[in-house]
Amino acid sequence: MALLEVNDLTTTFATDRGPVRACDGVSFEVERGEVLGIVGESGSGKTIAALSVMGLVPPPGVIERGSIRFDGEELRGAPEHRYRDLRGRQIGMVFQDAGRALDPVHTVRSHLREASGRQDDHGALLQRVGLDADLLDRYPYQLSGGQRQRVMIAIAIARDPALIIADEPTTAVDALTQVALLAELMRLRHELGAALILVSHNLGLISRVADRVAVMYLGQILELSPTAELVREPGHPYSAALLRATVPLDGDGTRLEGVGGNPDSLLDPPSGCVFSRRCPHADDSCAMSRPALVATAPGRHSACHHLDRFAEATRGVGYGS
């Protein structure tokens, strides 16, 4: 049994212009100790997927369908006190903007006291995330962005969780701090033997640390594959497009291919395959029916009607081939 089993998760928001499915039939598993990357652009539903697992879907969002099993226990519909307990003890969370996630009127010590449930040893916790114990009595505004993010990581690991969910944990900091923070997170995760769901729009970052990657677009997972295989031979036209759009190191400075077309809106999702309006391989059948996420090779899953055609056209275009 996997640590986390998400099945057909559908999270809907009521808006003035009708219901919006931010997550639409999302299924994935996370094994113990595994790092799963969820990559996607704004509006892809990656953050809502993470929030749904944590029971933190903001109103007016509701989980309309599906199941979320953590360590065998069904969480969908679990009472708030059960979620609170889980979030404290077994699921640690790191958010993008620690400046907002931390309470401005509480010191670091007070945050750590609440997170750990212990009255002392807070300095040791801070040292575990590479911060000086001197910072315990500071308020969040007295810390740098990188320090605040480390405090968030300390809170997340305070009770040795089995699963850490990190949503764009390093997006608000600059390049060097990003790598240092990520290295810290990966080291701690390894020490704890915890699984990690790493949500990011940055495929480069994900590729460095994730065992498997789920690629999301417009609320759906379009590909779910081991990282190395996805990069070497993308199993979905959108995965291939994301790889091509990434600004390369030591490129020749010529035009970037990009994804093509404009981002679709959840308010007006394409019929059939959600990527069909932008896909170079799409034909009429793509707009007719939604392709299911099916196994295409051991460990690989893809939601595409024309995988054969796509595979033919892109053979050898992946990274490192």
Partner: peptide, 14 residues
């Protein structure tokens, strides 16, 4: 620190 797409490369020592 430029995290290019490179599976298995891990994170550079910074």
């Amino acid at each position: 620190a430029a995290l290019t797409v490179d599976p298995g490369a891990g994170l550079p020592p910074i």
